[in-house]
């Protein structure tokens, strides 16, 4: 049977759906019996969800007319200079 260490090493690949059918079965057997690894896999899944959510949080706080204007002005200038 896989050790907890091996399960932890595979947890990311598992969350990403990147394990083979054989590994998936071994993981399932281990996780059915081991509370610690079950928690760890849940933590990895939550970590991924919160990481994705953090990007959304970033997006909502960002609305910068000044910078957008600066980019468009620089673009116009570059077009005039460089064609």
């Amino acid at each position: 049977m896989m050790s907890c260490k091996e399960v932890a090493e595979k947890a990311n690949a598992m969350v990403d759906g990147e394990v083979s059918a054989w590994e998936a079965m071994q993981l399932k057997v281990h996780l059915a019996m081991c509370k610690g690894c079950g928690r760890f896999v849940d933590q990895i899944r939550t970590t991924d969800e919160l990481t994705a959510a953090a990007a959304l949080d970033d997006m909502m706080s960002e609305a910068d007319d000044g910078r957008i204007n600066a980019i468009l002005a620089e673009l116009n200038q570059a077009r005039h200079q460089g064609g």
Binding site: C4, E9, G36, F40
Partner: peptide, 19 residues
């Protein structure tokens, strides 16, 4: 960050917390 989390037989030294 997991390198010290397991004993010699590859088992959790401290069980992960429930989040």
């Amino acid at each position: 960050s997991l390198s010290a989390a397991f004993d010699g037989r590859g088992r959790w030294k401290n069980m992960p917390d429930l989040w």
